[in-house]
Write a protein that binds this DNA or RNA. Structure first.
Lengths: 145, 145
DNA sequence: ACAATAAAAGATATCTTTGTCTTTTATTAT
DNA sequence: ATAATAAAAGACAAAGATATCTTTTATTGT
């Protein structure tokens, strides 16, 4: 159990790669993305298809086609990506799966979980794709191996 | 994606139920536990088998047998249970699955994740089974529906 | 010793996630 | 128009998580 599913990790990394490519003025194909973020190509294709359908990224078919992002796209928080792929499960419900756990009748871990969730949510909601990407470009970290 | 796997949730709930039963002076069988924590009986059996093998709980075969906990068992933190079932994945590695993410070359979310992990870890390490269970008994929350 | 009980162990089934392969559709350049 | 390109779509495969069923082993009370 990690925070995000494999699909979601691929999605996040892919969107960052696409954003960077858009900034460099070019669209990128699944193959190039997959190679650079270390993900299975066809599987990533499905994920990008979905993100594209939901308007989180854009796509163009045919020669010189590929994936890219708009100005609007990169202003969105990264929670868009996480919600689109993993849904809201991580941010809701009792951490122990207790049915009767609620604000009124909280399980002993309820408030801890609440804090943690809020931190997570804060992080995902407040960091935009753009912001993340700029930090990446600043050379603080590499996307590929 | 939730924090814990289904197995782990069952494990946590089961251990709490067993602890309570031990406090009431009785051993409990898989069937009773499963009914009371809403989990599939045979599947839970496997999980308890594992927890028992790892010394997190105790078991006795035969008539009047069942699962129970020792004084030592309930002094252990609930992280024992989580680690035993889900492993340490939740508490390690880059949240985005980035290979080159580290303290030296952190990804933009690295420090956020670090904080969240530490909070999670703190919670799991510092709350004992006993403590959790007493809070449960105080009626703050119900284990079953 | 024997019957009853309950966990341990092993085999098997189902569902979800992850991953692959093939065909179709849209776009572009010639 | 045609060929080439690249995403979209659909069908299929493999692996892991979840769940069930049957047999074995250990223990207890009679």
């Amino acid at each position: 159990m990690s925070f995000f599913s494999k699909s979601c990790e691929y999605a996040l990394r892919a969107v960052f790669y696409i954003s960077r490519s858009t900034q460099e003025g070019k669209k990128v194909g699944v193959k190039e993305i997959a190679e650079n973020i270390q993900s299975p190509e066809a599987f990533l294709g499905k994920i990008l298809q979905r993100l594209s359908k939901e308007g989180i990224i854009q796509s163009a078919k045919g020669p010189n086609g590929g994936f890219f992002v708009t100005e609007e796209n990169i202003k969105r928080p990264i929670s868009d990506i996480v919600l689109s792929i993993d849904g809201k499960a991580l941010l809701t419900g009792c951490g122990l799966g207790l049915k009767e756990c609620s604000e009124d009748k909280p399980c002993p871990l309820h408030h801890y979980f609440k804090d943690i969730r809020e931190q997570l949510k804060g992080m995902l909601d407040n960091i935009t794709i753009d912001q993340f990407n700029n930090d990446l470009i600043k050379g603080k970290v590499m996307l590929r191996k």
